[in-house]
């Protein structure tokens, strides 16, 4: 895959993250000001709030979407920085594969956690 396409997606991912992470940050950190999506009150990370958000399929889906786009955006950015350090071509190839594997691995792990969390919350 060439940089023309990868960078276009990098930009698009950035825009998606802006909205999804914006919402995530507003829920988690501007709770005293906005207090959205914390039905149980108290702190946003209280288990009751986590379960309440986790019961929603829409929330679970956006978590997984945010996970994927943020991993791509971040790891492609890291690859850009590493490649600018001018590693030898075989090392570049190895780095690309390591970053792909790390990205896919974290995506599968995070998706598993979000999905199981959704089922745990649904049963609660």
């Amino acid at each position: 895959m060439r940089d023309q396409k990868l960078w276009t997606w990098h930009l698009a991912a950035g825009v998606i993250i802006l909205f999804l992470l914006g919402l995530h940050m507003a829920i988690m950190h501007l709770d005293a000001l906005l207090g959205i999506f914390n039905p149980a009150g108290g702190h946003p990370i209280d288990w009751a709030n986590v379960v309440a958000r986790g019961q929603s399929l829409a929330f679970t889906t956006t978590y997984i979407l945010l996970l994927g786009t943020a991993l791509f955006h971040g790891l492609y950015g890291l690859r850009n920085i590493l490649f600018e350090l001018d590693p030898a071509p075989p090392l570049k190839k190895a780095l690309s594969w390591v970053l792909i594997l790390v990205g896919v691995g974290l995506f599968i792990f995070g998706t598993w956690a979000a999905w199981v969390g959704y089922q745990v919350a649904s049963q609660a």
């Binding site: 060439r2 940089d3 023309q4 396409k5 990868l6 960078w7 850009n80 490649f83 600018e84």
Partner: peptide
């Protein structure tokens, strides 16, 4: 020119 520009030598850096 896209042969060169779409790759690592292009404006992405």
């Amino acid at each position: 020119r896209k042969d060169v520009l779409a790759g690592e030598a292009g404006p992405w850096r």
